[in-house]
Design a protein around this nucleic acid. Structure first.
Lengths: 118, 118
DNA sequence: CAGTATCCTCCTGGATACTG
DNA sequence: CAGTATCCAGGAGGATACTG
């Protein structure tokens, strides 16, 4: 695996992960297992149905999640992480770890700023 | 560090890294050390000056890189990774690793498709 | 229940020209 | 050399209404 900048493949991973709701959707499926469309919607109160469907479809197209349709009325659709999708977990963990530390750092900086002012 | 989806901090990290040219800029600075504006431009043939400046400014604002200006004519400006920026390396490595494997996987899939057709 | 179908807004990124 | 200043196109994401 070449590490020279010219051979950068970071964007290949970013393409998959980037999307307003993709990381949080992946965390739900990774940590809580299979979920129905409606359950995800309930856990993501601010997402619209259109966006939820769109993000799920994009993840499905890349084999990150699996979509299982039950032909019944009313319809039932279940989403789950694929093995391949699970391979993203170290990346998501690393980002969550860094992100947690980053927000800490930011609030500390702001505290210092406020001290200076007062 | 809570790992429940509701406490997701992945986006905090994504915000910093996402940007058409940020990952590759970071790799250059991480792996080749301090660089002048013009050197980066030369290594990134397709970037416009406006975009290069914009991406660098955004990284600087987050303390990921440092900008050092030499007051002389003609001007000289050097960019380098900060210690804090270096803390992103595990994330970038993980994404590069995953991304390399992902493009391999994709080309294998395409090969299978072509076999089926012919 | 789990979607489509429209319409709309904003923001990212690019082309191009100019400057201390 | 290392930037600004404009102008512009495309796409991501959202609001809302409808449907098998």
């Amino acid at each position: 695996m070449e590490k020279k900048p010219e051979n950068c493949r970071v964007d290949n991973a970013l393409e998959i992960i980037v999307g307003k709701w993709k990381p949080i959707i992946l965390l739900h499926l990774l940590q809580e297992g299979t979920k129905r469309h409606g359950e995800l919607k309930k856990n993501l109160p601010d997402i619209t149905q259109k966006m939820l469907t769109k993000q799920l479809r994009e993840l499905e197209k890349e084999d990150i999640i699996e979509r299982k349709v039950y032909s019944q009325i009313p319809p039932k659709v279940e989403y789950s992480i694929t093995d391949y999708g699970r391979s993203l977990e170290p990346i998501l963990d690393a980002m969550h770890h860094w992100g947690t530390n980053h927000s800490l750092r930011k609030s500390q900086k702001e505290a210092i700023q406020n001290d200076k002012i007062s």
